[in-house]
């Protein structure tokens, strides 16, 4: 009897530890195709989503996706609504003051998109007096407010809303990730009258070194495991498989 009771006790004690070790809640966005979007049935799809699942499989943990609007992403991580963010979040100095990051898992440039034949040039002077749309809380907000100081910078909750207003003509230009703009807008019917301006817009202070997995500060164990998992999926071909599903080139960068 005593043995039986102690067995139950041991069993009860181990349950919470097993659950916390096995489960990881992942913050994702769902409005940033092709990195993160929802299909008609509301299921989450995209590069970020696949990478999140691949990293969890590699680390041997069970992942639950939690949907979160972009501008509340870091606050939600800090207030423990989820444990990591896999949402194309660039690693920047300003963000590093609030959260920790893994190594990058991809890096793509930022470019300006305008209406074809608009004659706009992608410089401070060229955009003077123009309305430039960016996603609120994105690295592009930092960049636009830093460099396009003579323009009216408009802030949106999601990147999809930026494209809606660009198509509607409420803004003259928009700044965002080049791959996302190509796949999520320019290659779609609503983006057919629009084009990239030549050249990348890059600032180390604003854009950082690429997109990484964000986690709360002081979680070095988890960070090491994430870095290992990123290396592992790069090496074992899983990353390439996911990459080729969405892109014609390697988005990891150099």
């Amino acid at each position: 009897m005593k043995k039986f009771l102690s067995l139950i006790l041991v069993g009860l004690m181990s349950v919470p530890f097993m659950v916390s070790a096995e489960e990881l809640r992942v913050g994702v966005e769902g409005a940033y195709p092709p990195f993160s979007y929802k299909d008609a049935s509301g299921e989450m799809l995209g590069f970020d989503i696949d990478i999140a699942h691949a990293l969890c499989d590699e680390m041997g943990v069970k992942c639950t996706l939690v949907e979160q609007d972009w501008d509340g992403m870091i606050p939600a991580l800090i207030s423990r609504r989820f444990d990591i963010i896999v949402a194309s979040m660039s690693v920047t100095e300003e963000r590093k003051r609030r959260v920790d990051f893994s190594d990058k898992y991809y890096n793509t440039p930022a470019r300006l998109v305008v209406r074809k034949g608009s004659g706009i040039r992608g410089t401070k002077e060229g955009l003077s007096g123009k309305r430039v749309g960016v996603q609120r809380g994105a690295t592009h907000q930092c960049y636009a407010e830093k460099f396009f100081t003579d323009s009216a910078v408009k802030l949106y909750g999601t990147q999809e809303e930026v494209f809606l207003d660009l198509a509607a003509g409420r803004i003259d230009a928009q700044l965002s990730d080049a791959v996302q703009a190509e796949e999520g807008f320019l290659s779609t019917p609503s983006g057919k009258d629009f084009e990239f301006l030549p050249g990348n817009q890059y600032d180390l202070g604003c854009h950082g070194v690429g997109a990484g997995v964000a986690l709360r500060k002081g979680n070095d164990g988890l960070r090491t495991r994430l870095n290992k998992a990123i290396k592992a999926i790069r090496a074992n071909g899983i990353y390439k498989k996911i990459n080729d599903k969405y892109f014609g080139f390697d988005v990891y960068g150099d």
Binding site: D71, I74, P75, I78, S79, E94, R95, R97, R98, V99, R136, G137, A138, Q141, C142, E145, L155
Partner: peptide, 11 residues
């Protein structure tokens, strides 16, 4: 408020 939060990633 949201602009400030978005710019500095504060809660």
């Amino acid at each position: 408020g949201r602009t400030l939060n978005g710019k500095y990633y504060v809660v």
